[in-house]
Nucleic acid binder design. Sequence first.
DNA 1: TGAGTTGATGCAACCGGTTGCACAACCGGT
DNA 2: ACCGGTTGTGCAACCGGTTGCATCAACTCA
Lengths: 318, 318
Amino acid sequence: MATLADVAALAGYNKSTVSRALTRPEMVAPETIARIQAAADQLGYVLNRTASQLARGRTGLAAFVVPTLENAFFAPIIGGAQARAAESGLHLTVTVASLETAAGVAALERLAAQVDGLILAAPRGPDEHVAAIAAIKPTVLVDREATGLPSVVADTATAVGTVVQGLAVRGHRRIAYLGGPSGSWQDPGREAAAREAAARSGAELTVHGPYPATFAAGVSATAEVLDSRATAVVPYATAIALGLLLTLRGRGVQVPGSVLVSAETTVTEALGVPGIPAIDVDGGALGRAAMDLLGTAMVAPGENSRLRLPVQVTWSRP
Amino acid sequence: MATLADVAALAGYNKSTVSRALTRPEMVAPETIARIQAAADQLGYVLNRTASQLARGRTGLAAFVVPTLENAFFAPIIGGAQARAAESGLHLTVTVASLETAAGVAALERLAAQVDGLILAAPRGPDEHVAAIAAIKPTVLVDREATGLPSVVADTATAVGTVVQGLAVRGHRRIAYLGGPSGSWQDPGREAAAREAAARSGAELTVHGPYPATFAAGVSATAEVLDSRATAVVPYATAIALGLLLTLRGRGVQVPGSVLVSAETTVTEALGVPGIPAIDVDGGALGRAAMDLLGTAMVAPGENSRLRLPVQVTWSRP
DNA sequence: TGAGTTGATGCAACCGGTTGCACAACCGGT
DNA sequence: ACCGGTTGTGCAACCGGTTGCATCAACTCA
């Protein structure tokens, strides 16, 4: 592996000049840069991040922490964050960890010591645990808010309210809300919005859960949904909706017909029936926004904006 | 932040002794260790990984590379690998990247320069691209094999063969195989196994695809499946199966009845109908095995075992 | 008792970049 | 011709550990 010194020797300059040519071109004469560039190319030189990090006192790593990867919901968020991270020369490492247990917190504290900043996506667990991590390194929250921390959340509460109201307008008198994982920060807000919308439009709302955001949870929720005699269901996550949909149909229940299940556009359109509400979160935007916030947080700690991204509600066409 | 030198000064020893006391206790007198330990605790000393890495010439990072995170299939694999990595003090960073394009390869080559080893999960793209990465750092393949590289694959080909034969035995004369993403290494093997099983048991096999492993692909595959007039379908991935199932039922097609779709146990059981084949891959085991292989590959390059993990086939009960 | 081990610790040279400071060459202005 | 101000480059001291080699005391065995 070629080092700075090798390049310097070949190009006939000092290490320091080479370093500057490669990282701060504005400090170096154009033709010098060209020569150094040529030498670097010839040797196939690549910067040794570790050395660079040691010298600069930064690691060039950011961590994206998710509670689980089972939920495809995080995929586009990670994608968006990763794209932005790459642009600013950061590596984004994805880690699965929980803030619910002391062991999980300890693991994250260790991780925090090794990165320049963290994005905690939909972290569950008490505020103090979140604060403990945020105390170590600049931290941005996704789909959760906390005082004193920058955050970006998809405003699904409003979307759920819209959906419930829309359902009521379309004649649904009994609506079931399937809550998300216990500890979910978003869940109470969504539930409240659902309740409020139901009350305002004179529909009855039954609340069920908590359910993890998995297919299996949707399957096991079926009995409760049927018991509730609701004609429309608003589940917390797409995976839950899928499990529910398939099981309902497996039991010969008309969907929609006797029961209508909201999901996201790709799913509702697949149902081949119009008038099913879909809630679509732009995960990529969430991820990009989170990374941007982290970028500023790493430069100017203390700065903490709370972003709320709008969420789209559409009603399926056939 | 306290450094080695601080601890050394406080404890009255040399940096080097402190370093050894902390990382190779067997080389240092017990009471010395005790004193150094005390000093370290008092100062709240924590090892600076970056410095350690620079000196040792290793990064303590391993990369887990997936073609996409949309597919929940990778979640348990990553989980398993991450668990094992943590045990051996490695950080596992998850990266989304493709080996199909030159740009993707370049990005991975850059990544490879920064880690101690990589696990490429279900990489698509030509062998030379894989080889290019493997030439840089110890590399383990998951769900793909290549000469000279350690790999671990889930033997889904055999499972697909079993399923097709089972379907034929149960009276299905026309079976549709929905191929996976173009470039998938597993796909040809599965297709071959399906063909062979069909031929052996006198059933007719129609092959469709390629399809990406997504819900949307399952939706769009519906027309072709119906056209094929097959009574049973074996899709490449669970997400495809879900899209297909939902759309079929959305169109009023009896599933099963007119068409039967295989998936994984959680899904087939949700259908509430017996006799549907499920193919279940133990992702956690795949991940753990991959990480173990990487561990040995990092110590002893050249060593390259090819593991084939059995895959379970079950037929749903009501 | 002396030569040969063994064990514990110190010394100093790394690992590969980054950066403050010094210095020389060159600028336009007076 | 002289001066303050740029601009471009080199020098060397870092960043914080790791490790080969030297040193020295204590210990073994003849």
